[in-house]
Design a protein around this nucleic acid. Sequence first.
RNA 1: GCAGGGGUGGCUGAGUUGGUCAAAGGCGCCGGGCUUAAGAUCCGGUCCCGUAUGGGUUCGUGGGUUCGUAUCCCACCCCCUGCACCA
Length: 943
Amino acid sequence: MSSELTPVDEVAWQKKWSDASIFEAVITEGKPSFYCLEMYPYPSGKMHMGHVRNYSIGDAVARFKRLMGFDVLYPMGFDSFGMPAENAAIAEGGHPHDITERNMASITEQIKRMGFSYDWGRLLKSHDPNYYKWNQWFFTKFMEHGLARREHAPVNWCSACNTVLANEQVKAGRCWRCNGPVEQKEMNQWFLDTPAYCQELLDGLDTIDFPENVKSLQRDWLGRSEGANIQFGLEGRDETIEVFTTRPDTLFGVTFVTLAPEHPLAETIVKGTDREAEWKDLYDEVSIMTEFDRIKNMKKKKGMFSGCYAIHPLTNERVPIWIGNFVIASYGTGAVMAVPAHDERDFEFASQYDIPIRRVLVMEEGAQHDGELKKAETDDGWMVNSPIDGFDGRYGQEARNAVCEALEAAGCGHRLVNWKLRPWLISRQRYWGTPIPVIYCEDCGTVPVPDEDLPVVLPRDVVFSGEGNPLETSASFLHVACPTCGKDARRETDTMDTFIDSSWYFLRYTDPGNDTQAFAKAIADHWMQVDFYCGGIEHAQMHLIYARFMTKALRDMGLTTIDEPFNELLCQGMVNKAAPFCSDCGVTLTVDHAIGSPCPHCSKELGSRSAKMSKSTGNTVSPEDMIERYGADTVRLFILFAANPTAGMDWSDTALEANHRVVLQLQGIPDYMNEWNGGEGPMDAWLEARFEQRRLEFIAAMDEYDLRRAVEVSHFEIIKDINWYTRRGGLNGEMANKMLPVWAQMVSTSTPHLAEEWWEGMASTEGFVSSSLMPLPIESTTTALVNLAGEQYIRDFLEQARKIKGVAERHLGQPASEATIVVSPSWKRTLAQAALNFVIEGGHPKQFMPLLKEMPIAQGDRMGEIMGFWGKKMLPQVFKWDDASREIICSTLDEEAVLAAASDFIATELNLKTVLIVEGESESDTTGRAGSAMPLSPAVVYV
RNA sequence: GCAGGGGUGGCUGAGUUGGUCAAAGGCGCCGGGCUUAAGAUCCGGUCCCGUAUGGGUUCGUGGGUUCGUAUCCCACCCCCUGCACCA
């Protein structure tokens, strides 16, 4: 293999692909289609390793599916609305539009340099009016269908971002984007009715191939709980208090009712009493405090008696009404029935405020049911102490049903499924997003912008001061004639959450040029669902819920027939790199601190630990630099080979270099193989069979998206096979013609430029490997299998023989010069075959003994010896042989013949003068070592 | 607290329908061939012991089931992710 290699001109290949438009997605009659998609990126100026990894995975899949004969849709675009560009405009001047376009241009160039096989003709950008027009159109349709509505409601407000946030965008009380505190504010905002699809979103999870943790995340977020709403009357008042509970079976244990401080009734019943001030304090504490502080203070339960009593719906008992800080206004009804005996929080609260605790369940059937409870017993139990007949003794679900029936009969309660998911708050008080297409008219009220006036385009004449919503500074935008009556009216200045953009972009990709519809139904239905969707786990409960919701909503408006947008989701792992780490302090430091230097906190010597690549740690690697130095192929190969797609991977410069060497080595392979001039030989059939086997392994791995394994086969194992071939004397230049086309196809999924170079140099190929089809696999013949088995046998034998040789030479005190290989005596083989057949047919090995006694080999005076051999040696071995070995043993493979044919080779490999092969216990066996020879495992005697 | 995912040799990482497992592959390290040399590449070694094909101890910890367990069961510890006074 030559060392005088010119690097592959990757850019030239990229240009050729582009000129020939080979990655354009087309629909071919009769061909299956495959939609391969990566989460489209926000166009920051630079591509980082996370992008590289994401797209290297997707591209390998797309290329593989093309090889396998699919019409592949593999698009790229930009999630180009969003706050970073607007914040940059505020900080540095300029306009978000220009900043975004500039960033897009530079990141696009970098992505193209990687050689990914996108259909760039479908490039989509969210901030294109031709795209966001459809956001607006959908919005007006949602209004028509009652799925979009404006409400005055408490919402999450991030003052750092100067906008409201959806529930999904609040992480542990903080803003998902800036990590600033989030507070509650009452505002008029637009919501989409995501809860209408709760049940379907939950059920749909069972029909799609998402990772378990993502499903679990989504289930948590949907938060289904089954229970009942129950009405409590109020003593001396007309109102009722409605509570939600999952435990109607504990209804008779209610000793008080608790309202959230924000509950409207709380204010009503304390108004004008001497308790009003106390309530106000509590109200202020929970509502004005940021959610973050509230969570921190959660541990302290606090409450007050309201002075009022509720009436128990079934017993008519008086129950005190309390107001407590632990009741959440926005969940359920904002009021709970308190059963201290069977709920931990109620127990704690009741103990604190000396409220009676009444047991109404026992945890063991027929158990004692008086006596004091030490703690709440929250499991299902048997009802006791019921003041009404017919309930005691009922258990769990049956008990709940009985209580619900009683409530329903009394007309003061009903069964209900409650969800945690709230409507999607989509209003944002920011400029760089889709304007909400609504006009407010004094006479006509809230008027949607008519279809013919769409899109409502973002105006240029706005001021980015960092204060307030910039859209409000545009007079031309703000003032508009009412579409209904023509009078002066005012436009909505809020824009849409940018997650709207990413909720349907995969549909637009199917028909990106359509200017009369968002997408043609037939085309979208042809390509959808996305077969393979690859991206980061961070979108598990935002984007991936919204997109599923949107797909279902659009389906119900008749725009598609798709239930779920994504079939298989793959969340790629993070790209990490070693960073300084103090094991005592448990702190990861920036790369400014050298490994081995003392920790700045405790002075202990710093070690290193793998950490996510981040600007703050400084452990980033620039893809650009790496491509420049090693080429895109090497970077891609390394990324795919370093770890499985879903696993975290560690960046390693040395491993990268090792992969670069593999790329160089592969580059020289065609020349190397073509130089073989030995003509046909006995090893050719083996190499052919072996290669075919490798191809099947490759296909199987790719089918399961086990890209690491696939690359291991295509870029590593086949090289080893070639080495073995030449080592065993193979030197047929014809093999190059036989193997290289298919091998190039395998190589092309991860290192396409290199593969094109191979392809171009071959006589039998034309066009591009990137647009070629892989021939169908060939079924292996029996001869091929025996061939493979024979070589495997020799390899295994050599490995074993080498080990023994070391020990033997120590024993001999000098290098061994000769070896006698003692193949297992034929009766052992016969025995093994009989035992294996017995086992394969389902027999228990231990029951083989009686059969053995009947066998001809066990007759005569050797019977005892053979029985002993079976128990001690053969029985354990029968279990240990793998399927391949079993096949070989039961096959016609003649160990002695295989070894004899390879005896010269063996002698060379073991560095011996002569090698003698004998059958154990035969006349020529003078070694006396036949005892330790087993089928597939000959004994070796060194002299 | 609840839920989901994990803990394998110097590192990384396969392997989990129990037997093919002292445990693939890669990296690192060691030795050898090739070479004037370097690089590249090829071959071999890389838990411990062992004058012959073997033995010992290993897959978070401790128990258990089994002829046999990295793999199955139970308990515990630790790590990651998400949710969290959700009634």
